[in-house]
């Protein structure tokens, strides 16, 4: 299945992916509109700094989001049965109607890809933007650091 990958050497830490993600998961689907919504939209991707020293161009960073793991610890830890693998797409999905906000998924996610929506007591994470043809973060990334592809393609790219 296709996944989102971040090529560290191309990431500028510009955080365009975060903005695009938050907007894509808002009511208005637009960052200006989203900022005026009652519920502040949350990004499900987070730019994490690897080296903070040096000028902006020298900053190394990685955009972290759900890896849709083969053996998802979040699915195993979920006490409500609200995290599962979609049988058609193979994606790991949070069923928000089941989630109680116990944060057992945050407890076990090895990359820290799950964010809290505190007001709603719901766990949020990357869903590959099911309404869009390409996930919003991929479209927004100005350097092509973020790619959406099969794992094999990613391996080829690195060679």
């Amino acid at each position: 299945m296709k996944k989102v990958y971040c090529q560290i050497e191309k990431c500028l830490a510009c955080r365009s992916c975060e903005l695009a993600c938050a907007a894509a998961h808002s009511e208005s689907k637009d960052i200006v509109g989203a900022l005026q919504e009652k519920e502040m939209p949350r990004s499900r991707v987070r730019v994490e700094f690897i080296d903070e020293k040096g000028t902006l161009q020298r900053v190394r960073a990685v955009a972290v989001q759900c890896r849709h793991c083969e053996e998802p610890l979040c699915e195993q830890a979920c006490i409500s049965g609200g995290i599962h693998r979609d049988e058609e797409t193979g994606d790991i999905v949070v069923r928000l109607d089941k989630c109680v906000g116990c944060w057992s998924c945050i407890m076990v996610c090895p990359v820290g890809a799950i964010v809290k929506n505190e007001n709603m007591h719901q766990a949020l994470k990357c869903d590959f933007c099911p309404d869009l043809e390409t996930p919003a973060c991929i479209v927004a990334c100005p350097t092509g650091a973020l790619v959406y592809c099969e794992p094999e393609e990613m391996a080829k790219e690195q060679l």
């Binding site: 971040c6 560290i8 987070r46 994490e48 990685v62 972290v64 820290g112």
Partner: peptide, 13 residues
């Protein structure tokens, strides 16, 4: 965070 692990080579991206 995860980025810290990449920094110290615990995780390879």
């Amino acid at each position: 965070n995860y980025g810290t692990l990449v920094k110290y080579g615990v995780e390879k991206e």
